[in-house]
């Protein structure tokens, strides 16, 4: 069994927690779990309860949309140092896409339900966590908009 102290160390090594107060990090590590997935495995499927969120330590995963009758569309790939899953923050707490593992991947997951309870009591921790999540979400949104622009498509003509 992985010790909580070990998980705290693993959290400290992830860029998401850079500069975070040690007490806060230790509180979070109480909800953490070390996980490993092989290529082709799914961490979550669209519609599953979003009771955990993940920090990629090493490896690669793909965020995918299932399209009936077609191959799934890969929306984005994520690698070591990145974080995914914020559906645990937003009712109805369900995954909005599939998470497929591309290569041997090591993750730290945090129990969203456990954390929601802690954040309800500790607003300072809640603010700290949201302050770290929002820039990631903003960057992801900005990237998604850039992808939507189809910038490599045919160049526009003046006035189009």
């Amino acid at each position: 069994m992985v010790k909580v102290e070990g998980l705290d160390k693993l959290l400290a090594e992830h860029p998401f927690f850079d500069g975070m107060n040690e007490d806060m990090r230790k509180t979070l590590s109480g909800c953490a779990r070390n996980e490993r997935f092989g290529p082709g495995e799914f961490v979550a499927h669209e519609g599953d309860p979003a009771d955990r969120f993940y920090f990629v330590r090493a490896g690669a995963i793909a965020l995918e949309f299932h399209v009936p009758g077609c191959n799934p569309i890969v929306l984005e790939t994520l690698h070591g140092g990145e974080v995914f899953g914020w559906s645990w923050l937003v009712p109805p707490y369900a995954w909005t896409y599939d998470i497929r593992v591309l290569e041997l991947t090591r993750l730290i997951s945090l129990d969203g339900a456990c954390l929601r309870k802690k954040l309800n009591k500790d607003h300072e921790l809640g603010f700290e966590l949201y302050s770290r999540f929002v820039p990631v979400m903003a960057k992801r949104l900005s990237s998604a908009r850039l992808q939507l622009s189809d910038m490599y498509g045919r160049p526009c003509k003046k006035g189009e």
């Binding site: 995918e64 191959n71 890969v74 984005e76 990237s143 910038m151 490599y152």
Partner: peptide, 23 residues
């Protein structure tokens, strides 16, 4: 190398090219 969108058979990156700079 990254692409803006791909089907699941693609083993490479999906996402904007600016993301590659971080790594």
């Amino acid at each position: 190398v990254t692409v803006d969108h791909a089907e699941s058979g693609w083993a490479g990156n999906v996402g904007v090219v600016t993301k590659l700079i971080e790594r």
